[in-house]
């Protein structure tokens, strides 16, 4: 069959991990058992269940993971409902990778990094964080602030506990919105926590989460004196082609699928407020 960017390949969901009550992580390999394609942290892929629909998801696994791609997916629509009902061994279609990804080898190189994530917003950052952990010596200090509604809603909690927290030079700050009995960590919203922590303004910030979190965290960072060109985020809009052709995911003259999803705030300042 003639190839076309719109024609997907078939992938096998080889493993499914339950992260939170509404987030599962899906491991996808090709029919040949190998990783479907190479990617850059922050890039996305189109997953589809034929007959149900196609949707764009961030690739959560690090490019350094050689055997598979992983996607942490929150249940919130037709396609995700169907994915959540799947069992390992079932097939999906996959095409990608799409988007620009984070400048991990250029602008991030040698920098101190501050990751700020809320809820499922950890998914796109997970890939960057693990990439940076893998090439630890290329980066300076790494701070991670991650919050969720409750302890149960923290995605990748096992990995955070067992790997990230135990690594030298990585400082993980977890927080949840409300007190709960089996939690002795920080309680409060992410924006406030970031301000409390008062990170060094020389750090490069990578942020992802619900719009309201982004808005207030950004405000806090501004107050602390961070420059807007040192803060990165990743966006999401409705997409169909993911190739910059179908015409719906634009913000001004930029297409989120092609020119994004990763933008610096000084770049977003140049775009109209329509996202």
């Amino acid at each position: 069959m003639r190839r076309d960017p719109l024609i997907p390949m078939i992938g096998v969901v080889s493993h499914i991990r339950v992260d939170t009550p509404d987030v599962k992580t899906f491991r996808v390999i090709g029919l040949d058992g190998k990783k479907p394609f190479e990617h850059i942290p922050g890039q996305c892929a189109m997953l589809s269940v034929p007959g149900v629909g196609e949707a764009l998801f961030s690739i959560t696994s690090s490019p350094t993971e050689e055997a598979y791609l992983e996607f942490s997916i929150k249940k919130c629509g037709c396609v995700t409902d169907w994915l959540h009902a799947m069992t390992p061994g079932q097939q999906v279609t996959i095409r990608g990778p799409y988007g620009n990804g984070f400048p991990v080898d250029t602008e991030f190189a040698g920098k101190d990094l501050l990751f700020v994530a809320g809820g499922i917003g950890l998914a796109p950052l997970h890939s960057v964080i693990n990439y940076c952990r893998h090439y630890r010596d290329r980066y300076g200090r790494i701070d991670i602030v991650y919050g969720a509604r409750s302890k149960e809603d923290l995605v990748d909690y096992e990995e955070i506990l067992n790997e990230w927290l135990s690594e030298d030079g990585i400082n993980v700050h977890l927080t949840i919105d409300r007190e709960q009995p089996d939690w002795d960590g920080h309680v409060g919203f992410v924006p406030n926590y970031v301000k409390e922590l008062s990170p060094d303004t020389g750090m490069t910030v990578v942020m992802c989460g619900p719009p309201v979190m982004i808005k207030f965290t950004l405000g806090g960072l501004m107050e602390l004196g961070f420059p807007r060109d040192g803060i990165y985020t990743t966006l999401e809009l409705r997409m169909k082609c993911a190739l910059g052709k179908c015409g719906r995911c634009n913000i001004g003259s930029k297409y989120v699928c092609k020119d994004g999803p990763v933008f610096r705030f000084d770049q977003l300042d140049e775009l109209p407020d329509e996202y």
Partner: peptide, 17 residues
């Protein structure tokens, strides 16, 4: 664009170009 045959065994792509 493309067709799919979906069965218990999996998904098969069909050329519909």
């Amino acid at each position: 664009l493309v067709g799919f045959k979906v069965s218990e065994q999996g998904i098969e792509l069909m050329d519909t170009r």
